[in-house]
Design a protein around this nucleic acid. Structure first.
Lengths: 103, 103
DNA sequence: TCAATCGTTCAGAACTAGTGAACTATTGAA
DNA sequence: TTCAATAGTTCACTAGTTCTGAACGATTGA
């Protein structure tokens, strides 16, 4: 199986981050992950239970390729964490400010 | 001619703002408008001169409908300003943080 | 080995974005 | 008034993206 692609810190772009977070569902996923301060599987991090799997998988791919989350395969499930350190290094306060705007 | 649509302050959504600014050209337009601290016509605010008019018009419409800019018709041209007060009231520091990330 | 679980990939339908051509509105000049 | 120039919009077409069901792949427990 092909390994999951993650951009390096320097390859994270502002446009990529903004367009990834411009989707309400993806924003909620990231918000949920931040609140957990722990890894979560894709289904556990889903904002509502009735989302088609393929749709969810697609959203996680977009978040991953934008550099917002780090996904590691752990057995049968995928563990996701927000790449806070990388994001803060690249775009200081951006993530926090966006999440604060999403009340 | 139909008047230009602008959302009210409360109708400005985070998703709308983020997806409007997720486009590099629109981000540059907003950045340019902020630096001017004055109204600018659409063509004056264009980030580069060789953009097709229809494309530019489309970007301004998206910015306008997302609540990022206020457009008023002044003679033959359209004057644009960033709706800083509305945006800061709705999403404190968001605009400033995003623009600061766009260096 | 079988079945269940978790997620990815594929393909098609529905939607969105970029752009040339045609159009509208305003202004200045003859 | 009429003509031309200027600033944007709207339309229509193409190209690309998103959503989702169906089929597939990988891991684990029984």
């Amino acid at each position: 199986m092909a390994p999951l692609f993650h951009p390096s810190r320097d390859d994270i772009t502002l446009a990529g981050v903004l367009s990834a977070l411009a989707d309400p569902m993806r924003l909620r996923i990231v918000k949920g992950l931040m609140e957990q301060s722990d890894c979560m599987s894709c289904t556990a991090a889903a904002p509502c239970p009735d989302i088609p799997k393929s749709t969810l998988s697609n959203h996680f791919r977009i978040l991953r390729e934008a550099g917002l989350i780090q996904t590691t395969k752990k057995g049968v499930e995928h563990r996701n964490v927000v790449r806070e350190a990388d994001l803060n290094a690249r775009f200081p306060k951006l993530l926090k400010t966006i999440l604060a705007s999403a009340e």
